[in-house]
Simulated assay, not measured.
Amino acid sequence: MAFSRFLPFRNSILAGAANVKASFWSNTGHGISTFGPDLAIDAGSSSVRSYANYTVFKGKAALSMTPVLPTIRKVDISKVYKNGCVMVTFWPAIGQRKYDWQKKQAFALSPTEVGSLIALGPAESCEFFHDPSMKSSLEGQVKKTLSVSPLGNDNGYFLNLSVVNHVQKTNERFSVPVTKAEFTVIRTVLSYVLPHIMGWPQALRSEVPSKATNLQKHQYVGEEVLRDPALEWER
């Protein structure tokens, strides 16, 4: 009898929670941001690793930020072969709360570019330019420009990505406004991951795995590479 008296109270709580969730979606529209890890199992390993990102969904596009660890090689001593990055991925909207996950464009933020975002003031803006063929005969064929500009009145920032491909004759543009609170989250996570994408925590470790001494120079040691920053130029 005591349990049966509890059930109506429990059901009313669940119904209230559902109403709050429905109200949240209807009132906020496209200004939704989510933050949560995706779990995946490494090939050939029974261990489970957590791949976390921070995603912001808005009316015209969505963006996600994901840390990419550096590549570490064995050359005399363990050393960073290639710095990591923070991969910023954009997707275009194709409807209300619907996005085309196939038509993505990525921009790999270097440690210095991450520092620029961390230091960005309320009324300041910055712009980053990437060209995979810079200083070669193919320079200018594909260009990516990421700009960050204030919304005004200290309300947040616009993150704009422009991708010009003269080979395919395409010009893609993405624009995502982020609120002050959302940019605070971005600034905080960037501050945390900055030393990791530079390989500093790995360098400060007192012990190196014993099997590392048997690796050839072309093999990686230390932290496993999660994703190659070259993916910025793949679809």
Rank of each mutant, 00 (worst) to 15 (best):
Q105K: 03
S136Y: 04
P67K: 05
G84S: 05
K104Y: 04
E232N: 06
V167Y: 01
E113S: 02
T28K: 08
T55S: 15
L159C: 12
K144S: 04
G152A: 06
K98P: 00
D38T: 11
G140M: 12
M198A: 03
E224D: 05
K144G: 03
V164E: 13
P150C: 08
I13K: 07
D100K: 15
T112L: 05
I186E: 02
S136Q: 15
V56I: 15
N53K: 10
V80R: 12
P229C: 13
I118E: 09
V56R: 00
N19A: 12
R49P: 00
V88F: 03
N11E: 08
E223Y: 01
S125M: 09
E113W: 03
Y220I: 09
V221D: 07
G84Q: 07
F57E: 09
H196M: 12
G156H: 15
A93I: 06
S133P: 00
A123W: 07
T184G: 15
Q168G: 01
T71V: 08
A43R: 10
W25E: 08
T34P: 01
Q202M: 07
A106C: 02
A22Y: 11
S162R: 13
Q202C: 05
V86E: 02
V56P: 01
K217F: 02
L69A: 00
M1I: 03
A61K: 09
D76P: 01
G36K: 02
V48Y: 00
N171H: 11
I118C: 03
P229G: 10
A230I: 05
Y220W: 02
R97C: 04
V88H: 02
K98E: 10
V189K: 15
A93C: 07
F107S: 14
E113M: 14
A43Q: 14
G44V: 07
W233Q: 06
A61C: 12
A181M: 04
S125P: 08
P195R: 07
K79A: 14
E172C: 10
G31Q: 15
G16C: 03
S136E: 12
V75Q: 14
F35S: 12
